[in-house]
């Protein structure tokens, strides 16, 4: 069964955010299924739907490397299993 998660990136916009996140994901063998992003008042918000079925890291390790990357880029990067959004927003 396909396991999906949502990554949210929030912070100040700058060059190369998507590239850096995508590189990290590629190295972890995580496939990006969908990306959407917006900028409001200089605040960059990106949401990625990813397939973590074949991820070569434990979920906790993936979460840690994403949040470490976030710290380097001065952004907040979160990853959550998609089920929580499905539970909350779909009847």
């Amino acid at each position: 069964m396909q396991e999906k998660a949502l990554i949210t990136v929030i912070g100040e916009d700058r060059v190369g955010i998507i590239a850096k996140v995508a590189t990290l994901l590629a190295e972890a063998n995580v496939n990006i299924l969908d990306i959407s992003q917006t900028i409001t008042g200089g605040l960059f918000t990106m949401i990625m739907m990813v397939d973590i079925t074949h991820c070569n890291l434990e979920f906790e390790a993936l979460k840690k490397s994403l949040s470490d990357l976030g710290e380097q880029l001065n952004l907040k990067i979160e990853i959550q299993h998609e089920n929580i959004f499905r539970a909350m927003h779909r009847i």
Partner: peptide, 12 residues
């Protein structure tokens, strides 16, 4: 896919 607003609502 979920709407932007839905995801941000959960996070908030």
């Amino acid at each position: 896919m979920f709407k932007f607003g839905e995801i941000l609502e959960t996070l908030k």
